[in-house]
Amino acid sequence: MHKSKPDIEQLKKTALAARKMLIRIASKSHSPHIGSSLSHIDITTALYSAILNVTPKTARDPCRDRFILSKGHAALGYYCVLALHGFISQKELERYGKNDTKLAGHPVLGTAKGIEATSGALGHGLAMALGLALAGKRDGLSAKYVVLVSDGECDEGSTWEAILLAGHLGLDNLTVIVDYNKIQSFGRVEEVLDLEPFADKWEASRWAVASLDGHDFAELLPALSSLPLRKGKPTVIIAHTIKGKGVPIMENKLEWHYRDVRPEDLEETLAQVY
């Protein structure tokens, strides 16, 4: 299941295509959470293009790498990345949000290839990834288990229950990527419930920590290619990101957690995407 490693320029092209697809489909389906999707697209593109040993053909292989989008509200951006990697058909994605279709506003197990768990309520993904990783470990699999969490969902006690247990068990096949865009649903993280010193909290819970620019493939690829960071410890990658990344009018703006792109603004918005 080896992937040929695409170069960084190719990854940038894929991420740009995913952003444009997201804006277009979000607009026609009047979908919110655009800013949340934009902040993870570089990360999920890196994962599916270069890191995860899973393809549409191996999507049910017990030895595959597994990815869970725990911040389920960012599903549409994830669907776009899955579509660009062949897991979801373009035709199905174009019908997103219409009656009698499968893809929900938060990922639901069994609705598309590549979706490994249902999410939507925050604070559920890490515990499930932990269970998968522990089973993989005890079964002697060499698979990786990667879960993307939001900064806001690190407010959830359930997230910390799983952080403590994974550290205690030393599950080094488990990787958390925090999409640390510093904006949660009602304000800036530092104002609502400050997570800092964030890295220290993970380290104190026996995790190996890397902090990097979550939009820079030159930083993402080396870190994600050398998992685990430390043998015998789970890895957390604190990815500093920008909510709304890639669309200047949306960057660092809380309102793009909620707003949709009006049809009359679509062309102008698409023209901005970088």
Partner: peptide
């Protein structure tokens, strides 16, 4: 541990395997 949310969430992950 004393962590019922994790008890169920981790069990779900095990079942997914």
């Amino acid at each position: 541990g004393v962590a019922e949310q994790n008890l169920i969430g981790v069990s779900a992950g095990l079942a997914l395997s």
